[in-house]
Design a protein around this nucleic acid. Sequence first.
DNA 1: GTCTATAGGAGGATAGAC
DNA 2: GTCTATCCTCCTATAGAC
Lengths: 208, 208
Amino acid sequence: MVTSKVVKVSFKEQMLQAREDAIIRAVNHLLAEKGFDAMTVDEVAADVGIAKASLYKHFPSKEDLAAAAMVSVMRRAQAFLLSLPQAAAPIENLRATVAWTMSLKLAGEMPSLPSQNSSLRATLMGNKDYMDGLMEVSDRLGAWIEAAQAQGALNPKLPAIAVLYTIFARACDPVLEFLKMGQLHTDDEIIELVLSTCFDGLSARAVA
Amino acid sequence: MVTSKVVKVSFKEQMLQAREDAIIRAVNHLLAEKGFDAMTVDEVAADVGIAKASLYKHFPSKEDLAAAAMVSVMRRAQAFLLSLPQAAAPIENLRATVAWTMSLKLAGEMPSLPSQNSSLRATLMGNKDYMDGLMEVSDRLGAWIEAAQAQGALNPKLPAIAVLYTIFARACDPVLEFLKMGQLHTDDEIIELVLSTCFDGLSARAVA
DNA sequence: GTCTATAGGAGGATAGAC
DNA sequence: GTCTATCCTCCTATAGAC
């Protein structure tokens, strides 16, 4: 009796979780494809295959849908950072992180949010899961940045925060989409190219 | 009689032109501040001080308003490019162009458009003035890029088109706004910083 | 060409039955 | 929690008088 009840509840919760995962996946793709403003809640509902009103039982607003997608991406980022060899050179882990970010974007799985929308900003900043994830990711990258600067691998004259912003900005770099549209390069080539301009710059470098 | 009529028409046209200039200025600021989606035609009309219906006598749609703003910016860019010393080193002119672009953005005069909006894209691509301006700017920058690569000032391994995109992308680089929000740097310092990461990269450079 | 007033429609959010 | 049906606000665009 007790066991049966426990199993039932667990099953229900699994179904609920699975549905919310499906919702977040759909939101993620739509945000990556069209951006927050162009994405409609009707589309999300249609993609998931449920009624719009049902969506609102899971998430109280469109902003919260986007926030859930961002939390999901942040979790994936945290998992990726943990998968990197902690003993490796910090600069290599930073490069790997940027490459991972860009591959996510090229795969159409990087949600793009307008940085100006205030109600969205408020929802994001009020979301503890998101803020916690953002902080942890920032701290980990920040540590690598400072270590790489101390080792002389990263330019020590740059403020660490500027480096961090520059790395984050690769997640919404329009150069990626433009190069992809041109169809002259594979995704891997595009990543290599932008990775090069990001870390080595546009100017020629003296031969090592 | 004839003279009087000519003068009258010219005056009328001047007033018309002045009003359209005022409209474009308002659109420019609003686009820079809030972006295309968040900008409403009512706001534009209120800023200019005319009725919304009057706006639509000048421009047939919201998309055309944005296009007019882009044409205006493109003209300013062309004028700036022409003002540069044609005899200077190409790489210096490219750096100056990037700096000018970023200063425009920091001054709140760089309209930001969503790259995904299809109806807006269609309007822009159907606007001859805009496309002509874009082509001329691209050609001029492209020539400098190839010259700089031939001189060994720019990394010759990078496709010129990728360099061009990277330069254009500074017009919508979120790193600028983030650094500005941080209030730790003046606008000039921010420009110097991002100029450095753009051309010299994040990695340390060998001492010259 | 300027205005007031309004059409027309998209889209976020909810009511209420089941 | 899921559905259908609907509300309601906001915004683009236009009608029609002057």
